[in-house]
Design a protein around this nucleic acid. Structure first.
Lengths: 137, 137
DNA sequence: TTTATATTTGCAACTCAGTTGCGTTAACAG
DNA sequence: CTGTTAACGCAACTGAGTTGCAAATATAAA
């Protein structure tokens, strides 16, 4: 059993050909993935519905997490090994490139400590930085 | 000439009945506005195309700015008086309520100073906090 | 190995936000 | 008052994402 196969089983997901390919694609991918990019890389044989459903079950399991996207399109990245279905927290910022529209996880930038405001309850923080990525600079 | 009429003229926009109403709606609104909410408040007589076009010209002029939305729907808030078509910078965080899905500008929370990462150029920062708003707490 | 069952897949059809083209209307400058 | 240009409204479209359902297949149980 390969690592990706084991990972899928561990999360209670079935080892279908498509899901193995999808998981490997995430593992071999430097940056984040959109449905369009997944179609490009995996081939157009699989229906978009299958992709959407696989993504949402991967996300629920804690294998991947959704990241912001410039064009408000679904975009995902692999989680660190500490994630699971009940604890899905990330402490890094996200970077969106103004030119290539790509989103990257910036593990080296921590989220700021926010002092609570009276009347509010803060639960999650997302820090998005826009600019030029190394490829486009 | 009313303040809102003057504001529209100043930005080179025409004082149509609809745009005056829309601008006043923003000025009298505590929180941010979506197209749906605008339809509710202004009445369904105006076409959605008219609303979208008015919003994007208001945004281009620096009257309003787009704010994040939970459901990836267009959402806007009035800018401070320092904004215009060439300088459209905001230094506050945005809050999204998990329960009522509303977004608020948190003027009291400043954006963190980000140390640049080699190879990148950072231009804009967006800080989004999720949780419960005073109404839903 | 076979069988049962629950998950996954693929197709078609749909929803819903937002856009485009275009002819008409109305603001406003001259 | 008139010509120009911005704004409006309608219809038709786009594109991401969803839903229902029947067929296929991974996995557990016998």
């Amino acid at each position: 059993m390969s690592i990706s196969e084991e990972l899928l089983s561990n999360y209670g997901l079935r080892n279908t050909a498509f899901r193995k390919k999808l998981l490997k694609l995430f593992q071999n991918s430097e940056s984040t993935l959109t449905v369009e990019k997944i179609k490009d890389k995996i081939g157009r044989k699989n229906d978009k519905v299958t992709i959407y459903r696989a993504l949402s079950s991967f996300e629920k399991s804690g294998i991947i997490h959704q990241v912001p996207d410039k064009n408000n399109v679904s975009r995902y990245a692999l989680c660190t090994s500490t994630c699971n279905s009940s604890n899905h927290t990330h402490h890094h910022a996200h970077f969106i490139c103004d030119h290539c529209d790509n989103t990257l996880c910036l593990e080296e930038i921590d989220l700021p400590k926010i002092k609570t405001i009276k009347g509010f309850k803060f639960k999650k923080t997302e820090l998005i930085i826009q600019g030029s990525c190394p490829k486009c600079l």
